[in-house]
Design a binder for these strands. Structure first.
Length: 274
DNA sequence: ACCCGTGTTCGCTG
DNA sequence: TCAGCGAACACGGG
């Protein structure tokens, strides 16, 4: 579920359902083996009960929740991994099938953190001191909050010899792109994803910076307005090249190809991406 | 059964 | 020293 747009969606879900509300009860439904992974303290459950959600922030693919607990401010850092989702429901409705954490809210609503594959993470941050969390400090700029400037991007990519699409997945470089939007951005920039990151040149860097913004903005646009529209895996494919191997490129009609880079599928058009 | 997967971390290698 | 690579994590869907 998780690239920048989906995490932004989760942030909005959390704000709409729970901002300013108190958590009446917290539980980790442990049906069968659906438990927290090692390293994730069940203490999360205890710490959250009674706290009030004061702020929800997104940095790259991380969600930063600030709570007012009895003992003062408390942070909850949430990363959705591959299949994590925050879902809001009526407290009386059944919990999500793979709910790892359920928060019952003041006012009759509830939140589920649902994650079948358990690649996601939940961590308490004492005092909500997010500045002291190393993995957050290591993140590159967030394309949505901080923008992506062409000259900066060219310089940043110039520090690695990896293929440009692989470099775009590096969260230390830029925080928020994942396998879909890295590929989509390359397509929008007419850029061969296999091109070495340090061999872009200013024109391609400029095109790529604009393409990153466009790709994310396009995905985010679906979430504007009163209805949050969620891009479901299994639903219609809203992307230009992602998961479209063999289909025709919407720009030049050549057949889209799939190649593997860094153990991930890359979809691209050999006709118009150079 | 087999393959694939919107992510990250860890350990090895050259 | 360190960039880069591949395995591993765990489960569901086609």
């Amino acid at each position: 579920v998780p690239e920048l747009p989906e995490v932004e969606y989760a942030a909005r879900t959390l704000r709409r359902a729970a901002l300013g509300r108190r958590i009446v009860a917290a539980a980790a439904p442990s049906a069968g083996r659906r438990l927290f992974r090692p390293g994730t303290p069940a203490a999360v459950v205890r710490a959250l009960a009674g706290a009030r959600l004061a702020a929800v922030e997104r940095r790259g693919k991380h969600l930063l929740l600030t709570l007012e607990a009895r003992r003062g401010p408390l942070g909850l850092l949430s990363h959705l991994g591959m299949t994590g989702r925050w879902l809001a429901r009526d407290a009386a409705a059944p919990a999500a099938p793979h709910a790892r954490l359920t928060l019952r809210l003041q006012g009759g609503r509830a939140l589920d953190y649902d994650d079948p594959r358990l690649f996601g993470r939940l961590r308490l941050v004492p005092g909500a001191r997010f500045d002291a969390v190393p993995e957050l400090a290591a993140l590159g700029p967030d394309p949505l909050h901080d923008g992506v400037e062409a000259a900066w991007l060219e310089a940043a990519l110039g520090r690695t010899r990896r293929p440009v699409k692989v470099a775009l997945l590096d969260q230390r470089l830029l925080a928020g792109l994942g396998n879909i939007h890295a590929a989509e951005a390359c397509w929008r920039a007419r850029l061969d994803p296999r091109r070495r990151a340090d061999r872009l040149g200013p024109a391609r860097a400029r095109a790529l910076a604009a393409a990153i913004r466009a790709s994310l903005r396009h995905a985010l646009a679906a979430m504007e307005g009163p209805e949050l529209v969620y891009v479901e895996a299994g639903g219609p494919n809203p992307f230009r090249v992602y998961a479209r191997e063999g289909e025709r490129c919407p720009r030049c009609r050549a057949a889209i190809r799939r190649t593997v880079q860094a153990q991930r599928s890359t979809f691209w058009c050999p006709g118009c991406q150079r």
